[in-house]
């Protein structure tokens, strides 16, 4: 399987997350740029302990971006605080995928649990199937740092709660949307949803809008990447065909007139 000198395999069987992440860090510091993890069994924080790689004093090649491929099921907080690296999971992921992620890419060939993309502030997360509750909660953006979360299936309640920025795309493939409280407290960013969503499913701080040319361009781009990552039996054009809605906050200040002088 290893084709290049800088590729490395780690067997995660029987390792604690501390041991496994220590090994990943050691391998990366000694030059590995692509790391294959076999037999991952619930180990948390994969990809989190790679900060020093981007620092000059610890690395011969500062700014190195590591690619990690995971076989098995990673534990919570996969890619938490991830900063520029890439993680691919050949299977499902648990809660907290991309928690407070700053940059990089996470691709999950399956489903992910609760708080997927929580407080993300940059980078891209692609989930082939659905996600659990409170996806993209408090995602935010700043200038060109605009996080992206693309979900192939659907999401549970409180998607985009407190969202302050970023882009969430819910493609609804083989799924119906039953989530409630979508966008509760949302005051920035945008959620695109394909498929039927009733007004009662939305938080009171958001409204639905139809797509403009700019939105279509964004969606084309996101769906393009999605179909590149996953073979879901439908191509980009067919996914894009159909009715999308855009969910935006109706006020940047949802909590005005709360306080006296």
């Amino acid at each position: 399987m290893l084709r290049e000198e800088n590729e490395m395999v780690i067997d995660a069987s029987g390792l604690t997350y501390k041991e496994l992440n220590g090994l990943i860090r050691d391998r990366a510091l000694s030059g590995a740029e692509k790391i294959f993890l076999r037999n991952v069994y619930g180990q948390r924080y994969i990809g989190t302990r790679l900060y020093s790689l981007t620092q000059t004093q610890n690395s011969s090649k500062p700014g190195t971006r590591i690619e990690i491929e995971v076989w098995g099921t990673p534990g919570n907080d996969l890619g938490a605080f991830l900063d520029g690296h890439r993680v691919v999971v050949h299977g499902n992921a648990q809660d907290g995928v991309g928690n407070t992620m700053n940059d990089g890419e996470i691709v999950v060939e399956g489903r992910a649990g609760d708080i997927t993309g929580m407080s993300m502030r940059g980078g891209e997360v692609f989930i082939r199937d659905g996600v659990g509750y409170r996806g993209a909660v408090h995602m935010k953006e700043y200038l060109n740092k605009r996080p992206l979360l693309v979900i192939g299936g659907t999401a549970q309640d409180f998607l985009g709660e407190y969202m302050a920025g970023g882009v969430v795309v819910l493609l609804g493939l083989n799924a119906t949307h039953s989530a409630n409280f979508i966008g509760t407290g949302m005051h920035g960013g945008v959620i695109y949803i394909k498929g039927k969503v009733g007004k009662h499913q939305l938080g009171k701080e958001v409204g639905t809008f139809s797509l403009n040319e700019k939105d279509k361009k964004i969606l084309e781009d996101c769906v393009g990447k999605f179909t590149e990552h996953f073979d879901v039996g439908i191509d980009q054009k067919d996914i894009l065909h159909g009715d999308f809605i855009k969910i935006l906050p109706v006020s940047k200040r949802p909590y005005g007139r709360v306080y006296t002088y």
């Binding site: 953006e141 700043y142 302050a164 920025g165 407290g185 005051h187 920035g188």
Partner: peptide, 12 residues
């Protein structure tokens, strides 16, 4: 804070 200028910063 890494949020756009002029928006409310809500700490839930």
């Amino acid at each position: 804070r890494m949020i756009p200028a002029g928006t409310d910063a809500l700490s839930p």
